[in-house]
């Protein structure tokens, strides 16, 4: 793939803080016009990777190219083509959101007239409130606006949905979709798969400074484990244990005595085998959680290790 087709490429990208490695050789290739997600637990290296793209951190080794340039030499001109939302957004000062956004518009340029009020309106952000008086969620909205306002070629968004209520999250995901239709590239991170699965074309799973897998969202979802909990009225705990124990992909099963009998477990893969096993029971309640990333990443990690060992 030629460099012009990629918004971001990294080859064997490494970063260590003192002697502590943060990135242990990351290979990424993010095609232009795509939405690329990176997920992983805290400390996996998501933020470090993003900060290197913005030249806030300098790599210890390997190569990185952003929009065809290296961040170090691209300088301010390159950063004007990028919109960035930090993972830990700090906004302070006795200025209104409007004034702060005007400042960023001045230094990064290219903001259409009417663009800022339009974005603020969509997210439900009051631009006339002083920044330090904004709630965490409203600060996050302001951060999203400053990243999107100059319609940059590349958006780098670190945990963009944190602190947003579900309606605003949905609006944000629509904005990401529009950016893609617009030909912009979006690189976003989350520690919760559910937050980015609707938006992302492909997802890299990062763990401990290494990429565990890169796949499309559907594949990842199929492999992800979720917490399930069922309450079965008038059931015999031993029968429940036997029936559920036979379900493929079900692990960590706990069955509590009582009426109803409550059984909890993690389930990887499809729901159907579990539902089939529950036929014949009186199901009082069934709770299925969103696929838990921590567990699914660990699951992937174990799976890779097992495959590696079997080879």
């Amino acid at each position: 793939m030629s460099p012009t087709d990629s918004a971001v490429t990294t080859v064997a990208l490494r970063k260590h803080y003192g002697r502590r490695p943060a990135l242990r050789g990351i290979d990424l290739d993010i095609p232009r016009g795509s939405v690329f997600g990176v997920i992983g637990p805290n400390g996996a290296g998501k933020t470090t990777t993003m900060r290197i793209l913005l030249d806030l951190l300098r790599p210890s080794g390997g190569e990185v190219r952003v929009l065809g340039e290296t961040p170090r030499t691209g300088g301010p001109a390159l950063r004007r083509r990028i919109g960035y939302l930090p993972g830990e957004l700090t906004l302070q000062g006795r200025v209104t959101g409007r004034s702060l956004l005007a400042h960023y518009a001045e230094i990064s340029g290219g903001v259409r007239a009417g663009r800022i009020p339009e974005l603020a309106e969509r997210l439900g952000l009051d631009l006339d409130v002083h920044v330090r008086k904004l709630s965490k969620g409203n600060k996050q909205k302001l951060g999203i606006v400053q990243a999107f306002q100059h319609e940059p070629e590349l958006l780098v968004l670190d945990e963009p949905t944190s602190g947003l209520d579900p309606l605003v999250q949905a609006e944000f995901l629509r904005m990401v979709g529009e950016a893609r239709e617009n030909g912009q590239t979006v690189f976003l991170s989350s520690h919760v798969l559910s937050e980015i699965q609707q938006a992302a074309d492909r997802v890299a799973v990062l763990r401990d400074g290494e990429i565990v897998s890169v796949s499309d969202v559907e594949t990842l979802r199929r492999r992800a484990a979720r917490r399930v909990s069922v309450a079965l009225r008038g059931a015999d705990p031993a029968r429940v244990t036997a029936a559920l124990g036979a379900v493929g992909g079900l692990q960590d099963l706990h069955v509590d005595d009582g009426d109803p009998v409550r059984a909890t477990a993690t389930l990887a893969g499809e729901m159907q085998p579990l539902l089939s096993a529950l036929t014949g029971f009186h199901v009082a309640d069934l709770i299925a959680g969103e696929p838990d990333l921590e567990e699914s990443v660990l699951g992937l990690y174990r799976a890779e290790a097992v495959q590696g060992g079997a080879r």
Partner: peptide, 17 residues
């Protein structure tokens, strides 16, 4: 240390500037 320099430097300004 407050964390707000990061966002300024992520925009179109140089560090010497």
């Amino acid at each position: 240390e407050a964390g707000s320099l990061e966002l300024t430097l992520a925009h179109g300004v140089g560090r010497v500037q």
